[in-house]
Amino acid sequence: MKTNTKPIKLILVLALTFSLLNGCVKPEPVAPKPTVQVPTDQDPVKQRILDAVFKVANIRDFEGLSVSVYWMDPYVIMELEHLYKLEDLIKKPDKFIKLEGDELEGKLDLFAQIKAEDIELVPPDYIRTEIHRFYLVIESAEEGKLYEFLLWGNYKNFIVNGTHIRPNQKFLDIIMPLLNYDARLDIRGYSEWF
């Protein structure tokens, strides 16, 4: 007896199509990323930091953009006479990484999480010394340096775009996606400094 397989095939195709449509959660349509609004009415120095942070958070075109990270091993204690200055660190870092262009896509999103209350400025009178052991710079081919993050001021303060601020782990968390596993471990070592 000859079996007609057409209905079986049809049922199979229908069953598979049905499971395909219902078995999986449909991905959300890709919406354009909302633009992060910069809060205003801040202290002008704090406002400049916020402007820089949100400018980075709002980057959509990664062409010509780069992130360079220079750093020293946090567990190596240096003699006072060998305190590093930024130019020395850049010339002779223990470790260095660089990301460019599309490698940065999706890695700057956490910058949008910084709020005005996360920033506490260090009064200029309290600034005694700087030792430069970790430096991250985000640069655009067109506009130059957009964001600089430097450790340390007074052995514990962060220096963001040249301004000393009280250490807040959020400023470390936002750069974590830009770092490799080795840099992430060293940043954890540095976070014991404050």
């Binding site: 598979l16 199509t17 499971s19 395909l20 078995g23 999986c24 959660v25 991905p27």
Partner: peptide, 11 residues
């Protein structure tokens, strides 16, 4: 069909 099904579930 199974290939289609799995590729659809990736997200």
């Amino acid at each position: 069909g199974l290939l289609l099904l799995f590729s659809g579930c990736k997200n």
